[in-house]
Each structure stands twice: as structure tokens, then as C-alpha cells.
Design a protein around this nucleic acid. Structure first.
Lengths: 172, 172
DNA sequence: TCAAACGCGGACTAATATAGTCCGCGTTAT
DNA sequence: ATAACGCGGACTATATTAGTCCGCGTTTGA
């Protein structure tokens, strides 16, 4: 995969289910099965979202996750950074100081300021991050809501509710 | 490394040496040793730049590379695409069609248009690519020229000239 | 004419990252 | 007490990256 990995893709999709979940607090297993992805893999993703303050975790039986703040205050960049850890698009290796014409301690001017190539890459990364910061979880949820039939949200809530009550019940 | 790899970093640094090379056409080995990187690794990078029409290759003894067009007409994006092959920042896996509430052929509306998450990532990638396309090799060369002492360009040309004549000579 | 250096490509290796799985801990509700 | 929860660490398989090595066809100075 590329720079924005499956972790981010899975994370956002499952956060979107959380937007319309109402009072419920689905577990990571609930979310994984609702979304059709690996439960054990999703279980590695959500703790990162919790530490970043995007979701709140409720421990114990009947526990699970809910959004820690309104969806309109969670940007896609917040999610990406929480999951991927703010890894840079480009890592400058300071190649500019390694020139056959330089002596062992390379001249000062060679490492003065930021490497021009690095600066260009940083501008590109900034542009990418700005674009990700411009979109919130609420925007994405609205886009999905427009596509789905009117009763779909209620169906999802019902499905999550059934999962929750089956846990309380005879414990399979 | 991240999404923009060492290949790109090495490629751009060595292309910059080519900007001020004048009439000379340094070999990839010349460029690698001038820049202090692995000659065999750089030798895998330059054929890609050649196929993209960024540099022109001259085969045979005394052969080497020169820019195929003016540095002002070579953007950083051109170089990145030539070396990395235009790989996307994000690969959508169409997770949206995999919902536990869907039947085996998922409903039409679920895959209607572009996935909203994918669209956001594509906007971010576009922003990144636009930023890379805004900078040319000539811009980078100018930035370096401002830092280096006035006679540095001439020293590099002399170094490359000596390498060239030592090839013609008694063969090491 | 012949060797040496060139570009080019393919096969190979080592290290790292990604996508997962599995197990055990402490917590909590039934 | 048990079962499900979040959490973390250890583990595996596969893909990518960084880099080496060798061989082919071309060109050219000795």
C-alpha cells in the first residue's frame, strides 16, 4: 500500500459507523464485523484513536467506543496522525553535505538553512495535510447519508442494538 | 523511508549537478561519486529519468547523461513520477461495499460514485502533486547557487572534466 | 582490433514496514 | 465466577526499499 495505509482506511470507515450510533458504544469487534474487516486488526487501531482523544473507551463487559467530541471537530488529518503517527512524507538524508569536493568536515555553507529539496517536499506535505485538515468526519458522514436510503441509519442502530443485547443475554 | 524515497532524493541531487555541467555529459558513476552515493544504485535510477524524457543518455565510452530539456521545464513532480512511477498516496479497497447488513451483491447505492474517503485522499494527493509541480529544477539550482561560493560551480566543472580526461587517458 | 567504459536490464540479498494473528493482563457487568 | 471488554506485546507472512552483482550490446581510444 502507499503512504496512507489500510489502517487509516479501516479506521475512518469504522469511525463513520460511530457517528450515527447514538447512545450505543459498539465494541471494536462489533465495528469490525459490521464493516467486514478483521476484528483483531481493528483492535490494534482503536487504541491509537483513543490515545489521540478522538474516541473514548469504556472498559469491561458492555464496554466499547464512542466519539470523544463532535464529528464536526474531528478532521481527517487528526485521524491520520493518530493512526500513522505523523510520519513525514520525505526524510532528508542531508545528501548535500556529501560531495567529493568537500573536506572531512564539510563547509558551513553546505548545510546552511534547510536543504532546498527538503523544503520543497515539506511544502508538498503541508499542502497535503492542509487538504486533509479541511475535511471533518461530519462532512464524510453527510456524504454517506446522502447516498444511503432514509431508513439505513435506523437499520444500523437496530443491528448494533441486537449485538449489544445478545451480549447481555445467555452469552452464546 | 516514507512515500518519497531515497531514489527521488538521490535523483534530484544528481540532476542538480547536471544543471551546471555545461558541455559535459557525466556518467552515472561520475555523478554518484561526486555526490557520495552508491554508483550501482544510482545506475538503477537514471534509466527511469531517461525513459521519462528528463535526461538524454549517450552510450559507449565517453558516454553519459545530459538534461533532455531546460531545467526550468523540469518540475519536481516530473522527476518524482519518473522515478516512483506515479504510485497513489492511497489505494481505496472499496470497504464501503462490505457491510454486514448487505446481501451478497451489495446494493447499488453503496458503490455509487466515488467513495467519499477516497475522494478526500485524492484531493490531498492532488494538493501535494500541485505543490511538487510548482517547483522546477531551475528553482532548486538557483537556491543552491545562492548558498555556494562564487567559484564552486567552476570547481565542479573542473572536477568533472578531470574525470572525463582520465577515462580517455591511460585507463586508470 | 581489442579492451575498457558506457547505458541498460535482470537476478539476487538484506532490512524494514505492513497486515494480520494470537495470547495474556486488568477491568467490569451479569 | 465467568465472559466480554480494552490494551499491549510477541509473533508471522508478504511487500517494498535499498543496494549489489553480473551480463548484454554499444562506442571509442590505444
Amino acid at each position: 500500500m502507499a503512504h496512507l495505509t489500510s489502517r487509516v482506511e479501516y479506521g475512518i470507515h469504522c469511525l463513520l459507523w460511530l457517528v450515527g450510533a447514538g447512545e450505543q458504544q459498539p465494541s471494536s469487534r462489533d465495528l469490525a464485523e459490521l464493516q467486514g474487516i478483521s476484528p483483531s486488526f481493528l483492535a490494534k487501531i482503536f487504541p491509537r484513536l483513543e490515545k489521540a482523544g478522538i474516541v473514548a473507551a469504556v472498559p469491561g463487559l458492555r464496554g466499547g467506543y464512542r466519539l470523544a467530541r463532535p464529528a464536526a471537530q474531528i478532521t481527517v488529518l487528526d485521524i491520520v496522525d493518530a493512526i500513522e503517527g505523523d510520519k513525514p512524507l520525505f526524510e532528508c538524508q542531508e545528501i548535500r553535505t556529501r560531495c567529493a569536493l568537500f573536506d572531512d568536515p564539510p563547509p558551513r555553507w553546505a548545510s546552511r538553512g534547510t536543504c532546498a529539496i527538503h523544503a520543497t517536499m515539506q511544502r508538498a506535505e503541508r499542502a497535503m495535510r492542509d487538504a486533509l485538515a479541511a475535511e471533518t468526519l461530519a462532512d464524510l458522514a453527510r456524504a454517506l447519508e446522502r447516498k444511503a436510503p432514509a431508513d439505513f441509519g435506523a437499520s444500523v442502530e437496530r443491528w448494533l442494538g441486537e449485538r449489544a443485547s445478545s451480549r447481555r443475554g445467555s452469552a452464546r
